[in-house]
Design a protein around this nucleic acid. Sequence first.
DNA 1: GCCAACGTTGGC
DNA 2: GCCAACGTTGGC
Length: 139
Amino acid sequence: MTFWLFKSEPDTWSWDDQVAKGAIGEEWHGVRNYQARNNMRAMRIGDRGFFYHSNVGKEIVGVVEVCRESQPDSTTDDPRWDCVYIRAVIGLKQPVTLETCKVQPGLEKMVLINNSRLSVQPVSAGEWQIICELGGIAP
DNA sequence: GCCAACGTTGGC
DNA sequence: GCCAACGTTGGC
C-alpha cells in the first residue's frame, strides 16, 4: 500500500463535502499538473491518503481511500488529464497543521513542506505513522 | 492582498 | 530545444 496526500481549498471542496459523498466518493478532477497526475496514475484501489486544507486552515483533516483508479477527467476533453476517485474514511480527532509538520521530527522531508505547490503528493510510511499519531487515529 | 516559487506555453 | 512571458498556487 502506498500513501498519498490530496490538497483542496476548503472554500472549493472541503473535508465536510468529501464526507457527505460517503462511500461513493468523488472524482478528484481538475488536476492539470503532470506530476500530480502521474501520482494519481500510480494509485491503486485501497491506497490511503490524507486530506489537506490549503489556504484556509492549512491542516490535515482526514483520511481518504482510493476507490477508483485513474481514468479520464470528466471536466475536460483533453486526453492528457485523468484522475482517481476518493472517499472519506475517517476524520482526524485532532487536525495536524502545517506548522506542526514543519517542526515535527521525522517530517522534515515531507513533500508538503518542501514542494508546497504539488497538489497530489506521496507520503512515506514513516510520515503516515507520525501524522496518524498526532491526529489521534490508528494508522 | 502580496509575492515567491514553480509550471506551462509558445515564439524563435 | 531554449527561454521569456505568463498564469497559478499557496503561505504569509
